[in-house]
């Protein structure tokens, strides 16, 4: 099982000026949230998206490639156990607004 490695979005460097919580939301909702809010940060600033839909791992970087935004990094969030004892994985995706 994956061990918690990071303290979550707070440990991210560079620090995001805006963090969007898309936990529990299925794709494409996390992508829609990012597309709607990326203009709320300045060019060059960072925005983080927290999501637990496995599709987000591919789709956040793919969206950035399509939209010429800079995908910086994926960080695994601390694992918590769901009701049946299975690990519930979630990630923080860091994006830099590039234009």
């Amino acid at each position: 099982m994956t061990t918690p490695q990071r303290a979550g979005a707070g440990a991210l460097s560079p620090a995001p000026v805006l963090t969007l919580d898309a936990l529990g939301k299925k794709c494409p909702i996390p992508i829609i949230m990012l597309a709607d809010r990326i203009r709320d940060v300045q060019v060059g600033q960072h925005i983080a998206v927290l999501a637990d839909d496995p599709a987000a791992k591919t789709d956040l970087p793919a969206w950035c490639a399509l939209k010429s935004q800079e995908f910086v990094r994926t960080d695994e969030l601390p694992v918590r156990m769901d009701g049946v004892g299975a690990p519930h994985r979630a990630w923080s995706f860091l994006v830099r607004r590039s234009y």
Binding site: K26, C27, P28, I31, D53, P54, A55, K57, T58, D59, P61, A62, W63, A65, L66
Partner: peptide
């Protein structure tokens, strides 16, 4: 190949390996 269409709720491993959009 979108995740919401599969029983496992995982997106297509082919699209994921290619690094292309899996939803829609």
């Amino acid at each position: 190949g979108s995740a919401c269409v599969s029983d496992t709720r995982q997106p297509s491993h082919v699209l994921a390996a290619m690094g292309v959009l899996t939803h829609g």
